[in-house]
Design a protein around this nucleic acid. Structure first.
Lengths: 335, 335
DNA sequence: CTGAAAGCGCTTACAG
DNA sequence: CTGAAAGCGCTTACAG
């Protein structure tokens, strides 16, 4: 009765457990944290565990962080990009792998205006990872908040860490190669006019451009579409009139917009215009004609991200093996 | 020089600021937290602020949480649903509104296996909100971790809080009404076979069913599709052969799958089969034919969520006004 | 108007 | 093998 009273009244602390088990507070910590280098008798250990379970003891996170200096929290700062279809699998796998190692992954989107309070000011993370590099402002704040470990690592002059970002440029390469193999030499790259995406978009179309150049193909025509009006139709007509036959798209939605415009113009896909998307989202399979696309193994990327993050929090060198080969081209009806 | 030394060596604390400003540690806290009921001279205040800026002082979050018992962190526990298109806008708006009130919104996805460590064990949130109700296990953990405020509120017997969940059932109603207005009486409801979604899916098709019943329409035929094979074609053929003419879909991807199957079968959309989607994702505009769909005002929902959460952390009664009317039907070519 | 002091609930050398 | 004690960096009555 006094037990349930105490439970109801206020939070159970390590002192409560110690009292109930007839040991000191320190011993409670040693047992529950399995602190190495301590020799606790089996009987004592059992008494402590029994008491902590019986009382429903949960350590106070803030007190642990304050005393130990470690939170076992990793913050992932995401750019202000619209969520991509495969991204959820990336997060799921990364969280799972980190969870198994005893860490929690917490994500924060970074808006242009920026939140007044950065998350790392509140949660004392062991590590903060940015998908895009941090601003000087962010870095100053990170330092002032006592965040010791940051990825990408700014302080060192050694070569950049392995790139686990989702801004992969292997996809565009595969798209260009695939169109070339299907007999297309005059190519275009289609993107949506989505300001939030600018850095990612330009990384990808640059990759498409330079890979085409490396293959000796004519310059790739990069165009912005707006799916909300019919401007896409004109762009597609101009491509066709100009003799372009192969279109690589930033993602499957953009590819679907190109295919839709082509159909409205009476063009055959892939007869007159071959179109390849990116992300292998559900719509690629659903569309008529079904869309060739680039599939990301985002789960593998998520696991690789977790391994990299863990090596960083433990102060170990990053994993030496390359990130997994994670993109493949799925051919369907549109090429 | 000694300043930059100290900065480099270890974290700047309130004591450092106090020393530099020639005041006590308490005064530093009073000034920086703008504690009400204190009368601090303008000169002292200025000195403290100057020193804290100069030294780059940031309060230690863990210590603040431990001492004050409040973290200004709100955890939103998300079910294991695939991310819906409009969901990002919801999160953006909610985070922004909470941020303005000085709170950080942290989200955690809840996998079936469940993370070993729940986030609320580490971050001492002021409030934990679940999109779906918590399990008894979760509730026990929340209680043991000292989380005083939880939504949906389990402890009280008063009527449930206003529903801000994304499992809205107004969309299905609009779909049924719209199909009816377009002259369709024999309806079907199409979903994907996605186990992660079961609760949301059944909430929606139940809504469609009961609204059709309320309108005096024949029973709605609910069917599971699988877009990865051609089984969809057979379902759509069966609908057409059976005289069904109006199809409401769980989301725009499902609707696109139905439209695609209809086109492959040589049916006219909307002539032979009218199809209405849900979410108004980009693909609805892009598709040929363009898809009628239900648009969510998820930004307004996000703001409403924030207001509700803030009322809860402040211990105020929830906002009395209804959640905004947030769904509208956008008619395009498919109905 | 300002400061000295207790306390939040842990961890972790250190001493027995 | 176990415990007493200092310390993490704040907040907040309380006393002047």
């Amino acid at each position: 009765m006094s037990v349930s009273d105490a439970t109801a009244r206020r939070r159970v602390t390590a002192s409560d457990v110690a009292r109930a088990a007839g040991v000191s507070r320190a011993t409670v910590g040693f047992v529950l944290n399995q602190t190495p280098g301590q020799t606790i008798s089996e009987r004592t250990r059992a008494r402590v565990i029994e008491a902590s379970v019986r009382l429903g003891y949960r350590p106070n996170g803030a007190a642990q962080v304050l005393a130990s200096g470690r939170s076992r929290i990793i913050v992932l700062v995401l750019p202000d990009w619209p969520i991509e279809f495969r991204f959820r699998a990336f997060l799921d796998e990364a969280s799972l792998a980190l969870d198994e190692a005893g860490y929690s992954l917490v994500t924060q989107f970074r808006h242009p205006q920026g939140p007044a309070r950065r998350l790392w000011e509140s949660v004392t993370p062991d590590l903060v990872v940015g998908v895009v590099p941090f601003t000087a402002d962010d870095l100053a704040s990170l330092r002032a908040c006592g965040v010791r470990r940051v990825l990408p690592d700014q302080s060192s002059t050694r070569p950049a860490e392995p790139d686990t970002s989702l801004a992969s440029i292997d996809g565009p390469r595969l798209q260009v190669e695939h169109l070339r193999e299907r007999g297309h030499e005059r190519l275009a790259y289609a993107v949506f006019d989505e300001p939030r995406l600018s850095s990612l978009v330009s990384a990808r179309h640059d990759a498409a451009r330079s890979h085409a150049a490396a293959l000796g193909l004519p310059a790739v025509d990069v165009r912005c579409l707006d799916y909300r009006d019919r401007g896409t139709d004109e762009v597609v007509r101009a491509w066709h009139d100009g003799g372009l036959t192969g279109i690589a798209a930033y993602n499957d939605d953009v590819a679907a917009a190109v295919v839709g415009a082509a159909l409205r113009l009476g063009l055959r896909v892939p007869g007159d215009l071959a179109v390849v998307g990116h992300d292998d989202s559900p719509i690629a399979t659903i569309m008529v004609p079904a869309l060739s696309s680039v599939r990301f193994d985002s789960a593998a990327l998520g696991r690789h991200f977790a391994a990299l993050a863990l090596s960083r929090v433990d102060g170990r060198p990053p994993p030496t093996h390359e990130p997994p080969a994670h993109v493949t081209l799925i051919q369907r009806e549109s090429t």
